[in-house]
C-alpha cells in the first residue's frame, strides 16, 4: 500500500541538448494525480521535447524522469508495456493511422493489449467514440475525411481506449476554431471529472489554459517555474509578463471574468 501519494510524473535535473543547442537545462517538474497541468513556453523552448522525454520516446542528455515512481529510461520491456497502458497520448496533428478507419484506429491498442472478439472490439470503440462525442457515422470514416476538430477527438478516443490514468496532450486545441476549441475544453473537463484522470497538456491557447488547467508550468531558459495560474502570473520575468498580461491575455481574462 502506498503511504504517500506518489507524483504521477516527476522530472529532475533534466538536460536536453541538440547539436550544441541547450533546450532543457536542469528542468524539474512534478505532476500529481488528478490535476490538469498545462505546459507553456515560447516556440522552440522544448515543450514537445519535454513531453517526448516523459513518454520515453526520446532519451534525455541527462536527468531523471519518473512515471508512477518508476524511472522511464530503466524500464524493462514488460514494465514498459505495463506503463504504456496507463498513459494515453495525443499528438499535435492527431497522428491517426491514415490507412485505418477511425474505429480501427481506436481498436488498435485494444487489439494489441486485450484479447477481444470482433463484436466486443466494436462495442469498446463505440464507447470511446461516444465518450469524446463523435457521432456514430464517424466510425467508418478515414482520418483524411474528418475535419480538424473531429481528428482531435478521434485521437483522444484512441488515447482513452486502454483507460489510462494519465493523459498527455500536445496542443489539443491548436488549429481549431474557438467554438470547437471551447467544446474540446468542456469535453476534457467533463472526462476529467468523470474518470479520475491526470492530464498534462501543452497549449498555446490562453482560453484553454484559463478554463481547464489547475496548475501550469512555464518553460523559461531551459527551466520550469510552475504553480497555479495566479502564482505564475506574478513572476516578474519579462516573458511571463508579456504572456499573461499581454493584449490577448487581457482580452481572454476579461472574457472569462465577465
Amino acid at each position: 500500500m502506498p503511504t504517500i501519494a506518489e507524483p504521477v510524473i516527476r522530472v529532475r535535473d533534466l538536460v536536453n541538448r541538440f547539436a550544441g543547442q541547450i533546450v532543457h537545462d536542469g528542468l524539474a517538474m512534478d505532476v500529481s494525480a488528478r490535476e490538469i497541468f498545462g505546459v507553456v513556453g515560447g516556440s522552440g523552448t522544448g515543450k514537445s521535447v519535454l513531453l517526448r522525454t516523459i513518454l520515453g520516446l526520446q532519451t534525455p542528455t541527462a536527468g531523471r524522469v519518473e512515471l508512477y515512481g518508476r524511472e522511464v529510461g530503466a524500464l524493462s520491456r514488460a514494465e514498459r508495456a505495463e506503463i504504456v497502458q496507463r498513459v494515453g497520448v495525443t499528438f499535435q496533428n492527431g497522428a491517426l493511422i491514415g490507412s485505418l478507419t477511425v474505429a480501427e484506429n481506436v481498436q488498435l491498442p485494444l487489439r494489441e493489449y486485450r484479447r477481444l472478439r470482433p463484436a466486443a472490439l466494436d462495442e469498446q470503440s463505440r464507447l470511446c467514440l461516444a465518450m469524446v462525442g463523435l457521432p456514430n457515422g464517424a466510425a467508418d470514416k478515414y482520418p483524411s475525411q474528418l475535419s480538424g476538430g473531429m481528428v482531435k477527438r478521434a485521437a483522444l478516443a484512441r488515447a482513452l481506449a486502454l483507460e489510462p490514468t494519465l493523459l498527455c496532450l500536445d496542443e489539443p486545441t491548436a488549429g481549431l476554431d474557438p467554438i470547437s476549441a471551447a467544446g474540446f475544453d468542456e469535453l476534457l473537463l467533463y472526462l476529467h471529472s468523470q474518470l479520475d484522470l491526470t492530464v498534462v497538456m501543452i497549449t498555446h491557447d490562453l482560453d484553454t489554459l484559463f478554463r481547464t488547467c489547475s496548475r501550469i508550468g512555464v518553460i523559461l531558459d531551459g527551466r520550469m517555474s510552475s504553480g497555479t495560474l495566479e502564482q505564475v502570473a506574478e513572476d516578474p520575468h519579462p516573458w511571463i509578463q508579456a504572456y499573461f498580461h499581454g493584449p490577448r491575455a487581457r482580452a481572454t481574462r476579461r472574457g472569462s471574468d465577465g
Binding site: 463505440r126 461516444a130 465518450m131 456514430n136 457515422g137 466510425a139 467508418d140 468523470q194 474518470l195
Partner: peptide, 23 residues
C-alpha cells in the same frame, strides 16, 4: 463505481447504431 452513471447517460445519449446506408 462513479462512472456507471456517466456510462448510462452516454448510452442513452447515443442511439444504438444502425448500419449506415452507404455500407
Amino acid at each position: 463505481p462513479r462512472h456507471v452513471a456517466f456510462l448510462d447517460a452516454l448510452r442513452r445519449r447515443t442511439p444504438v447504431d444502425s448500419p449506415s446506408d452507404d455500407a
